[in-house]
Nucleic acid binder design. Structure first.
Lengths: 247, 247
DNA sequence: AATTGAATTTGACTTAGATCAAGGCGAATC
DNA sequence: GATTCGCCTTGATCTAAGTCAAATTCAATT
């Protein structure tokens, strides 16, 4: 029944983001790129570290060391509760930063681990030998990145707070799509980097429900799913769903 | 049946936070307080503007002008969707900042309005005449405040993502309590600055449900409610509820 | 290619919470 | 003090989503 959907996983070398589409780029520039001092940059930024799926980048509360930028692959950040169960707070795709909040606070606010093997750049910020002017620029960029992050995080309220799972899922898929497009990846046909369980956890619903809603959406012709491969067939209708506009 | 609970509203003059418990204080210091240059500070910070309930501080997308710090009263920030309905993303109490994200972005990321009349300080940051060193400190403080904000925002995931409304509400109440205590206000007996509707909106449930769960909690002796006045009678049990520990 | 184990789908059943609709209470206004 | 309006509570009913369990598919490994 399902015609096989084949989409390229995010960890494919093809989909590695170029530096100027990476959120870290602004910081890299301050740290050496714009002065043309490549040697200095190299000392600070370790580029393209390969990381295997399942590995942990850092734990919640751990002393801050690096800011990570995703080059390829996919990552999640999450909070662990006293009772052992985890709450995913965000997913991270190529071009996006992980652990940023740790810098100003001195420790990581959440744990982060790898969903789909890939590569990261990481920046050892603490030992930056910078001038006051550079530092000023640096913290300003930092503030910008953090502001975007707050905004993103608040938008997630719409997603979780929404009445129907159908709606949450529509918003979720469109959001993934947008983020992929922003970094130059295909937006209407991609591979979900996370399992149903993780989607369910993030949206605050049961994984069976995610399954059911996905198949329902497929029956309605909105999307095509085959395992983790997904295609948004009628993005317009999805967008309507996301905004609760009646048909 | 209900013995009258009387609690002081947040807008009471008694509960106005002192400067050194205010999140803006770090920024104020950079902007003049630490140099002892009071005149300069006065030019930048307008102190204690009275604001009436229902008024709007700013709209979403509006050009950034001020960072606000709550002195007394209560505020909410929210996103408006295409279909007209709003999603509250945060409440703001004495000592807390509003609109911070706008600075780096150039425009406000959400709308903010007044729940309970009170007063604010506001800071006209854009025209700060500061040295590079001061600016560096300034943006660094900014980054710290924003990092805390991201953290706070992500913690809210636990609140909304949680299975039962009972749990969400427990977390919500404890969170309010903590925030009040941090600013030197009583933590176990306070007045809810927002209506049931707003709580429900924030938690992503129906207002009737908030009502029901509150009365249920009262029946169990966990809390005492009378209108907007509330008393946390067995904080320990509430905390257990919040962490899903079985009794 | 066969085996194993995990992830996903599907089904049957149960339940928490939404919705609709009255009724009660309290604070502001006259 | 009576009146009004908006907020809050309570009840009855309904439905979306949770839970438990079995079946199926997928992917990793030998």
């Amino acid at each position: 029944m399902n015609k096989k959907l084949t989409t390229i996983p995010l960890s494919s070398p093809k989909s590695e983001v170029v530096c100027n589409l990476c959120e870290l780029f602004g910081l890299c520039r301050v740290a050496g790129l714009n002065s043309g001092d490549d040697a200095r940059l190299e000392r600070i930024v370790s580029r393209r570290l390969q990381i295997k799926r399942g590995r942990m980048l850092f734990a919640a509360g751990e002393k801050f060391k690096y800011v990570y930028a995703v080059k390829s692959g996919a990552f999640k950040s999450y909070l662990l509760m006293e009772n052992g169960c985890e709450q995913i707070v965000d997913f991270h795709f190529p071009g996006e930063l992980i652990g940023l909040e740790g810098m100003a606070l001195g420790h990581y606010a959440y744990a982060a681990s790898v969903l789909e093997s890939g590569s990261v750049c990481r920046m050892r910020i603490t030992e930056l030998p910078l001038s006051d002017t550079e530092l000023m620029q640096f913290w300003q960029r930092q503030a910008e990145a953090l502001s975007r992050r707050v905004h993103h995080c608040q938008s997630a309220f719409l997603l979780i707070g929404s009445k129907s799972v159908e709606r949450s899922l529509a918003i979720f898929l469109l959001n993934l799509s947008e983020r992929f497009v922003e970094r130059g990846l295909p937006g209407y046909r991609f591979r979900l980097p996370m399992g149903r369980e993780d989607i369910a956890n993030y949206l605050g619903v049961a994984n069976e429900t995610v399954s059911r809603v996905l198949t329902r959406m497929q029956e309605q012709g909105l999307i095509a799913v085959s395992g983790r491969n997904i295609q948004l067939r009628v993005p317009v209708r999805l967008r309507e769903l996301a905004c609760c506009i009646e048909t």
